[in-house]
Design a protein around this nucleic acid. Structure first.
Lengths: 212, 212
DNA sequence: TCCCTCATCACTGAATTCAGGGATAAATAA
DNA sequence: TTATTTATCCCTGAATTCAGTGATGAGGGA
């Protein structure tokens, strides 16, 4: 039987412990290295011959998404299974796009996790049903937000509006005419479908527009 | 040596597994029951003689905060150690106020967790340093928001403003005069220190004012 | 009892926003 | 190349908000 060396990464030690226990039950698993953040994983990659990384997304210093890219850069055929708390569907989208080999939520059963590991080390991909579902959601969300994508300048204006500047103040801050600012505002309302500036700002905060 | 029966609750099975492993190492621990949500803990409390509950905060159906109150109601001298991801300091405050016997973040080391368990079963309280720190933060935050506490009516108006209603529409919705609405708005701006309605709404969203 | 907060209502005038119509140059995508 | 998007600018008039000031009755706490 083909055996593999694994690194598991998560900043929660208790979680790491549980994961370790579950993996040790598997005959396919040879060595298991533990890490509590991304940079540590990279160091381990330099020291050992690793076949699979199982990593959490939220970690200090270097998160799972970054790690995904770095690890694949270091060793192109390395397999990566991502774990997550599954709070939002934006990250689900990102992880899949970045080329993860597997993705399961943290509340997955022991059996499903082991199945995911077996599937991935056999060279196939494994995504939990709920992940697939979230992925679809994110596609739809994306479509919903696609139609109302603001231009860079509009975002800029909206941010300043959120900071309580008036049109005149914004015009002075951006060195443009008040009329231009007003036009941007008009278009922002038009695109977001909001009736008031307040509504547009609220929308921006809630849809994470300001995070980009 | 005094031995105790424990229930551990967390909706993430892998985490539960790790916690289980760590507890099993302790000679003070007799039985460990697993649960994935609050209601299940309550059922176990009816079936077994339990001394300590170690629970996550975020769980489906019945969360840790609710569980805390329910469990103490069921058996006054039961001990409860809370675990959390430690995202915000408002929940830290809530948990301590509700009378938890211990509170440690999920990224705690095995040693600290075991120490917390020993301390609590000896009848004392155990709070991690970072928890104490967060608690202090929440106290300061609270003080900061204390000065600008809005009245019930003002909150109501602010909510409707966030929903893009104009003063006139609000006056119609609440069956009061437009002048009254304007006065409320004026006072909201005064209290929040915001210059615009947009700013006040942004403040309300970010400070979690709408959550109460 | 006295003071304070809350919720209600009123008026004025200045500032700002919103809705509506257009226009133009430059860059980008089809 | 043509069409679309982006960023810029302009004007008008109605609606709305903001700032300032003031008042009243009800209710709670010191």
């Amino acid at each position: 039987m083909k055996t593999v060396n694994i690194i598991i990464a998560d900043d929660h030690l208790m979680f790491l412990e549980g994961l370790h226990t579950i993996l040790n039950e598997m005959p396919q698993v040879k060595d298991v290295h533990l890490a509590t953040e991304g940079k540590q994983v990279m160091r381990l990659l330099g020291q050992f011959e690793i076949d699979l990384i199982i990593s959490d997304i939220n970690m200090p210093k270097m998160d799972g998404i970054e790690l995904l890219a770095e690890a694949k850069k270091h060793k192109a055929d390395i397999k990566i299974i991502m774990l997550s708390m599954l709070d939002n569907h934006r990250t689900v989208h990102k992880v899949i796009q970045k080329g993860a080999d597997g993705f399961v939520p943290k509340f997955t059963s022991k059996e499903e996790l082991q199945k995911a590991v077996r599937t991935v080390i056999d060279g196939e991909q494994y995504f939990s049903d709920i992940i697939k579902q979230r992925y679809m959601e994110s596609v739809f969300e994306r479509k919903k937000y696609k139609d109302i994508e603001l231009s860079q300048r509009e975002k800029e204006v909206l941010k300043l509006l959120a900071d309580e500047l008036t049109s005149k103040e914004i015009s002075e801050a951006l060195f443009i005419s008040v009329n231009t600012v007003e036009t941007h505002r008009k278009n922002i309302l038009l695109k977001t479908g909001a009736k008031t500036t307040t509504g547009a700002v609220k929308f921006a905060i809630e849809s994470g527009l300001f995070e980009d």
